[in-house]
Design a protein around this nucleic acid. Structure first.
Lengths: 192, 192
DNA sequence: TTAGGTAGCCAGACCGGTCTACCTACTTGC
DNA sequence: GCAAGTAGGTAGACCGGTCTGGCTACCTAA
């Protein structure tokens, strides 16, 4: 075999990612997941404690995926401005990578919408969004020659803009709206 | 009696609004709704065809509520700038009005996140957001002395900003972030 | 041998939805 | 004034189906 056969765990995570994104978490049953993964139910419970555990793994992976897309984009960026825009590109890349039957916005955010206030999954999503805002702030700090105060404020604004664009893009089923937000941001940075 | 007793329909809509917002749609069962409303199950199915019908009524009412808050704010606004900001104030008002156990962002958006791509509820939410963007565009048209092209572009940007702020506010459980977006917008409009 | 896979049945809870049977409050015809 | 009808309420049993999760029994490759 050229590469080790896909484990049940990997198959389950792949299947769950698609189904959770398309039909929501509550809207996705265990049976649907194992059917898509082509795996026995026992294998699911051998690899995960519960559905909630699988959901948590899903959120963690999606977070890591997005950071990976970001790292790749930021690696080719030269100017600080390009690095700021790399965050936008990362979401765009992930959008094109992740969806199968129509773009539905940020998977992490959609998941958070289904989770109740105390849920640890919600916290994970919150931390993800804060981390992204932090990335923007760092690159803006470079761009603004170390004016951290101003960078922080502008980063929040850009984070809101990006967030709103992704959300609206999900509603319209058109990830091009994220590109619009990128253009707006690019223009805004030119005007600094 | 000073005023007619609350009908079962009204009780159900009130109860459903709280539960849908707090626990999500799929996370809210019929039994929980009738228990909170203090109403017989038969009364639910006398007033609504199905749970989906109740959900649709919920979305319609939340849309109307927000527009009512907006109308009230825009009535006291004098300058076009104030009218643009009235949309932000409306969301802020609605946030403070609607939540009971912690702010969770835009109820319409959270609901949309649970609905699959073809669902008519999703379209209703999309239209709502487009209408809000339209309101902003109209007021910006005034502000920009009829430059509709520019108003439209800026309206989209402000709509993204507002949307992102509400979303992030929901994650943080703090509606003050919407106020931040309002301040950003106010500053931005001053710089026009 | 054994770890990890398969198929699939089962328990118990909960789901949306239907139904019967009874109970007010109001309206209407006489 | 009052009986009859009606509209809309109550409580709650019940239905078929689906949910998560546990289980047995068998298979297969290292």
């Amino acid at each position: 075999m050229p590469y080790p056969a896909e484990t049940a765990r990997e198959k389950l995570l792949k299947a769950a990612a698609v189904l959770f994104y398309e039909n929501g978490i509550a809207g996705t049953g265990i049976d649907a997941i194992i059917a898509r993964a082509g795996v026995a139910k026992k294998s699911l419970y051998n690899n995960f404690d519960s559905k909630a555990d699988l959901v948590h793994a899903y959120l963690t992976i999606r977070h890591a995926e997005l950071l990976a897309f970001y790292e790749r984009r930021v690696a080719t960026a030269v100017t600080p401005k390009d690095k700021v825009l790399a965050v936008f590109d990362a979401y765009q890349d992930h959008a094109e990578f992740a969806y199968e039957h129509g773009f539905r916005g940020c998977g992490l955010l959609n998941a958070a919408a289904e989770l109740t206030v105390g849920d640890i999954g919600r916290d994970a999503v919150r931390r993800h969004k804060e981390e992204v805002e932090g990335l923007i702030a760092n690159h803006l700090g470079e761009l603004l020659n170390g004016d951290a105060e101003r960078a922080k404020m502008l980063a929040r604004q850009l984070a809101f803009l990006l967030e709103g664009a992704i959300t609206r893009a999900g509603l319209e089923g058109n990830s091009a709206l994220v590109l619009e937000a990128r253009t707006m941001t690019s223009d805004m940075l030119d005007r600094l």
